[in-house]
Each structure stands twice: as C-alpha cells, then as structure tokens.
C-alpha cells in the first residue's frame, strides 16, 4: 500500500467544511431549480428559519435526547468495561457469557424496547436502558480484545518480576487496551444516540419529556417538514459532537505514544 501523505492541520478542518458548504449549496440549488414546495423538501434557509423560530421547543427536546444518550453512553461504558474485565480474568467466563453478549447485540432494539418499556416503570430510565443495550457491545468487544493485546515480551517481563494480578491489570493490560477501548467508544457514542432516538420512537412518549424523535414523529404527521429537517440536523450535529468529544479524549491520552493518534507532524 502506498503511504498517504499527512494532511496539514488547517486543511483537516477546512476540507470537511468545504464539503458542507458544497452540499448545502447543492441542496439550495436543487430546491430552487425544481421549485420544490417546503412540505416536500424545504430549502436550507427554511430549515434554518425553523431552527431559530422553534428554538425553545427544539432545545428542550434536544436536551431530553442528549441527556438520554449521554446517560446511556456512560452506562454502556461502565457496564462494558466491567464485563470486559470479567472476560479478561478468565477464558471460562468469556466462553460462557460471550454468546449472550452477542445475542444482545444481534437482537434488534425495536424488538426488545417494548418489553423494557413495559417492565421499567420510569420511561426515562427505560429509554436509557434501551440505548445502553445498543451501545454496549462495541465497548465489551473492543475492551476485551484490548485487555488481551498485551505485548508478550512485556507480559514475560511482568511475570519475571513477580507482578501481582492487580499490577498486571493496571500497569500493563489497561494501558495496552486504551487504543482499542477508544475505538469502541467512537462506535458506542453514535450508537447511544441512535439507541436513544429509536427507543423514543418505540415508546412514543410526548408532553414534557418529549425528545427529538417525538418532534420528528409529530412533524411528519403534521407535514411540518422544515421542523422535521431541523430535528434531523440537530440529531446529526449531536452525533458529530459526541464523536468529536470522544476523539479529543483519545487524542489527549494516546497522542504521544500510539500510532492511531500520532500528530502527522511528529511522525
């Protein structure tokens, strides 16, 4: 494979922005050229106007969805790491329970969500649980692989020096697992948001605790397509923001030593 030249820092920010500008311009041109009515495809300007006009409603809904996604993400990380640590302790535990972790992963959330919503009285808690189930597997699987991906030479060294199980875990396995863990977090952050939206669709909660999914449902029924677009834009922006936060954390922790996060200028 040919080596790819590193991209200057400014260009790494400018390039995706340019793509965004081009896409919005194309979208604008498309709506104008075919004279599409706003209830079919609203123009970017119409969506922006709706974002401003409905800001109170949308901000409240965004906060509901975001708080569910964040709580689910946190729960998935804590539970996922705990399960991965248990798996890493013994092959027996991993062999016995991994199939069920996979089962959780391959069962569509829309199929389990109604059950969770029936069983759990508090709807918010039910939604958090649903979204956490969706985000859990990449954390388990990546962290488990990471905890096992220890340099065999270093493992020998720790054994020679009579390192305790705890020392081995904290000083060798955990740092070795970090890059894998963050790869899992990147995927899980998006999944937590998707899970929060999908679970809300299934729950159909309205009123005070209405999130962005409810706004999309309602806007669809009322043919308020600009608001539907506005809600979609907010979900997409939230997803990107979550990803970037995880990415920043990964960079802060791995930048000096791991190949995946090295600054191109330092390579």
């Amino acid at each position: 494979m040919a080596e790819r030249a590193p991209l200057p820092r400014g260009l790494r920010i400018a390039a995706p922005l340019l793509v965004a500008v081009l896409m919005v311009a194309g979208w604008h041109w498309f709506v104008k050229a075919y004279a599409l009515p706003p209830w079919l495809v609203p123009s970017p300007r119409a969506v922006l106007a709706t974002l401003v006009a409905d800001r109170a409603l949308l901000a409240a809904s965004l906060w509901v969805t975001l708080s569910i996604a964040l709580a689910a993400f946190a729960l998935a990380v804590v539970a996922g790491v705990a399960i991965a640590l248990a798996f890493a302790q013994s092959r027996w535990i991993e062999a016995s329970f991994l199939p069920y972790a996979i089962l959780l992963q391959v069962t569509p959330i829309v199929a389990i969500a109604p059950l969770i919503i029936i069983w759990v009285r508090d709807t918010r808690v039910a939604l958090v649980l649903c979204a956490a189930v969706v985000a859990l597997f990449p954390v388990i699987s990546n962290t488990t692989i990471g905890l096992r991906s220890v340099d065999p030479g270093l493992a020998d060294l720790f054994r020679l020096m009579h390192a305790s199980r705890w020392q081995r875990l904290t000083r060798l396995q955990a740092p070795s697992a970090l890059p894998y863990f963050f790869a899992g977090l990147r995927v899980a952050s998006g999944l937590a948001l998707i899970g929060a939206v999908v679970a809300e669709f299934v729950a159909g909660t309205g009123g005070q605790g209405a999130g962005l999914a409810y706004q999309i449902l309602m806007a669809g029924i009322q043919l308020n397509v600009p608001r539907l677009f506005a809600a979609l834009v907010l979900i997409a922006a939230t997803g990107v923001a979550l990803f970037l936060v995880v990415d920043l954390c990964a960079k802060a922790l791995l930048a000096r030593w791991h190949e995946s996060e090295l600054d191109p200028a330092r390579r």
Binding site: D151, G153, L157, P175, L178, W257
Partner: peptide, 13 residues
C-alpha cells in the same frame, strides 16, 4: 536482570 531480543518497553510510558 533480563534483556530480550527486542527492547520490550512500554510505549505509553
């Protein structure tokens, strides 16, 4: 003390 064929240093430290 042991020195192996490769340096086997902890890359994160």
């Amino acid at each position: 003390g042991c020195v192996f064929q490769s340096p086997t240093l902890m890359p994160w430290a």
